[in-house]
Computed example of a mutant assay.
Amino acid sequence: MIDLHLIGIGTGNPDHLTRAAIAAMNAADLILLPRKGDAKSDLIDLRRTICADVLTGATRVVEFDLPERDTSAPYLGAVEQWHDAIAAVWRGKIAQHLPDGGRLALLVWGDPSLYDSTLRIADRLRADGLAMTVTVEPGVTSLQALTAAHAIPLNMVGAPVLITTGRRLRAGGWPAGVDTIAVMLDGDCAFQTLDAPGIEISWGAYLGMAHQALVAGALAEVAIEIIEARASLRERHGWIMDIYLLRRAVPVA
Rank of each mutant, 00 (worst) to 15 (best):
R120Q: 04
E221D: 12
I227W: 05
S117C: 03
A24W: 01
L130N: 10
P14Q: 11
G139L: 01
G217D: 03
H211A: 14
A210D: 07
L6R: 07
D42R: 13
V54W: 01
M25V: 07
P34N: 11
W239E: 03
V108C: 09
D116V: 10
M241Y: 14
W109S: 02
A27W: 14
R48Y: 10
A196Y: 04
T135R: 14
R103M: 08
E225T: 06
D53A: 15
G177F: 08
D38W: 04
K40D: 06
Q192T: 09
V250G: 13
L119Y: 05
E235W: 12
G173P: 10
T71R: 15
R170P: 07
A20I: 00
A20D: 10
A149I: 00
D188E: 10
Y115D: 01
V136C: 14
G139V: 00
L107P: 00
S142W: 03
L66C: 14
I240A: 12
M184L: 05
H237N: 14
G37K: 10
D84A: 06
I240E: 10
T135A: 11
V79C: 06
G139Q: 06
R91L: 05
G77F: 05
A182E: 00
Y75K: 15
A218P: 00
H16V: 02
P251N: 15
T135F: 06
I50P: 02
L98S: 14
L119M: 09
V61Y: 04
L130Q: 14
W90M: 06
D29K: 10
V134N: 09
P153F: 07
P74I: 08
E63L: 01
I2H: 03
T180E: 08
D65M: 04
D15C: 02
I31C: 01
V134K: 15
I163Q: 09
S202E: 05
R69F: 01
L219T: 04
T164N: 08
T147N: 14
L76M: 11
T56R: 13
I9V: 09
I201V: 00
E221P: 07
D128N: 14
I22G: 10
D242L: 05
I86V: 06
I243S: 13
L106M: 11
S232N: 10
D186E: 05
P175M: 03
G8K: 00
A127K: 15
P74R: 15
V61K: 07
I243T: 06
N13E: 04
G10S: 07
A85E: 04
S232E: 12
S72G: 13
V215Y: 10
R124S: 02
I121M: 11
R48G: 14
P67H: 12
M1G: 13
A52R: 15
I181K: 05
R126T: 09
R230Q: 05
G204N: 02
V134R: 15
E63V: 00
L66N: 12
G208H: 00
V54T: 07
A205P: 01
A231F: 04
D195K: 14
G166S: 10
M132F: 02
R120N: 12
D123P: 07
I9P: 02
A218Q: 12
A159D: 13
Q81P: 02
E137T: 08
W174C: 04
R91Y: 00
G37A: 07
L169V: 03
A73Y: 06
H83W: 05
R47M: 12
R103F: 08
R247Y: 01
P251T: 11
R247S: 01
P74E: 09
R126N: 07
G92C: 13
